[in-house]
Nucleic acid binder design. Structure first.
Length: 422
RNA sequence: GGAGAAAUGGCAGAGUGGUCGAAUGCGGCGGUCUUGAAAACCGUUGAGGUGAAAGCCUCCGGGGGUUCGAAUCCCUCUUUCUCCGCCA
């Protein structure tokens, strides 16, 4: 969330920039400032009551020691009065703080100045495109036919055992999954990332920490019995490692990578978007996360983009990079680049990675700070990106590499698969 | 799942219901000494709110209570450890 003082000092800028996200913040910003004024006043009142109580309590202690019981008892009358006032004020203060926090949770992150205006994904700006779009023969088929033909993914079996969007991978299909995961992890480790294996469920505090809660409540599987959420991305556990942590400046940059299964309810999705591997309820992803000094987070964003691009190049997939417009930018992000690969049989671009800088928006929620040699702790910047999400990569690999003899496995994966052809 | 013990500052570890944001040691930082370093010695060293500042206020796992006053007493939750049971 945004910091109240930042909102106070930059009200106009925040207002203007949030328009890029198509968010009319006028009313809520005013409400936040008013609630914060209220908070300060109540806090002051409460502190004064407490100061008086504290000093009276000391006096009473002294008087008892001196045996002046009557005098002590006289003062007690005032302290019991203060106690009531204290309690009332405290309750009011807590209510105001809660309202303030709720209001702050409703304000999305301020987009970076380079974010273009726009309403939907159609307004995203293509910033680069590379790789050759394969010319497939006329009998080329989409991946869901290929997976059937070669019996490497069973969608129907998934529906039977669990439900739509939970496929079974089998034989060379399962092997491909493992190969991709290991390839992505090894590449990240080579690039200096530290590998983590994390819990696949997180508690409510973690959900709030990275901002999935309360914004995306309905998109996560919720284990109500224990009030845990299945992670929609490893970003949540990996970033929340640093919740309530004060880092040292020399700890930067922190570079973590994690493979995890990801779970998404995808309520409201339909049609060709969900066909085959295009959208699943459970999928695999290797996620990179960096925690960085505020002065260097945009350099880091570039570095992460370069890492993702290098993976796609090595897999020999044609891809393009988009700068997300305000309307498509996520709630918590300041700047996001999407990577899309071309899926030649479906003849469409598929999103395979999203690389974002959250600046201090997540850090403020998580109280993720760092301390230099001098001065107060300040908020760090958090970034993350998929490197990469598996299903659509697999879809593109299958479609683009199909030929009469089968499906060619990219060279970089062969040492992981142990075969060069499906 | 059952029984017991514990939770204090970066770490270790004291703490009597009042003067405890908290002894002491280690670590960190600054200094003296030294050509430099080590050792020794001296000083300093948590976070947050408010305020121009001085100051005031909050925080000893979380929440609640008793009391004029709680790190200290009571309740509750969470976590950790030990023992028993069950189990991949």
């Amino acid at each position: 969330m945004l910091q109240v003082n930042y909102i106070r000092e930059n009200r106009e800028t925040v207002l203007e920039r949030l328009k890029i996200k198509n968010f009319d913040a006028k009313e809520i910003l005013d409400r936040v400032i008013e609630l914060d004024d209220n908070r300060k006043a109540l806090q002051k009142k409460l502190d004064d009551y407490k100061a008086e109580s504290n000093s009276l309590a000391k006096q009473i202690g002294m008087l008892f020691k001196q045996g002046k019981v009557d005098e002590a008892n006289q003062i007690k009358a005032r302290t019991s009065e203060l106690k009531t006032l204290d309690k009332e004020t405290k309750e009011q203060l807590e209510q105001v703080k809660e309202n303030l926090e709720t209001a702050l949770f409703e304000i999305p992150n301020v987009p970076h100045e380079s974010v273009p205006a726009g309403k939907s994904d159609e307004d995203n700006v293509v910033v680069s495109e590379e790789g050759e779009i394969p010319q497939l023969s006329d009998d080329a088929v989409p991946h869901w036919d290929l997976t059937n033909k070669y019996e490497i993914i069973d969608f129907d079996l998934g529906s039977k055992v669990t439900g739509a969007g939970f496929p079974f991978y089998r034989g060379k299909g399962a092997r491909m999954q493992r190969a991709l995961i290991n390839f992505f992890l090894d590449e990240a480790i080579d690039a200096g990332y530290l590998e983590y294996q994390t819990p696949l469920m997180v508690n409510e505090a973690s959900g709030y920490g990275t901002g999935q809660l309360p914004d995306k409540e309905g998109q996560m599987y919720h284990v109500t019995e224990d009030n845990l959420y299945l992670i929609p991305t490893a970003e949540i556990p990996v970033t929340n490692i640093y919740r309530d942590v004060i880092l040292k400046e020399e700890d930067f940059p922190i570079k973590n990578v994690a493979y995890s299964a990801c779970f998404r309810r995808e309520a409201g999705s339909y049609g060709k978007d969900v066909r085959g591997l295009n959208r699943l309820h459970q999928f695999d992803k290797v996620e990179i996360v960096q925690i960085q000094h505020p002065d260097r987070s945009y350099e880091t964003l570039e570095e992460m983009k370069a890492h993702v691009a290098s993976l796609l190049r090595k897999l020999n997939l044609p891809f393009r990079v988009l700068r997300l417009c305000g309307g498509d930018l996520s709630f918590t992000s300041a700047l996001t680049f999407d990577f899309e690969v071309y899926s030649a049989a479906q003849k469409r671009w598929l999103e395979v990675s999203s690389v974002s800088n959250f600046e201090n928006y997540q850090a403020n929620r998580m109280k993720l700070r760092f301390k230099g040699k001098e001065g107060k702790p300040q908020l760090a910047h958090t970034l993350n990106g998929s490197a990469l999400a598996l299903p659509r990569i697999l879809a593109a690999l299958l479609e683009n590499n199909q030929c009469a003899e089968g499906i060619k496995v990219p060279e970089v994966l062969q040492k992981y698969t142990g075969f060069d052809m499906i």
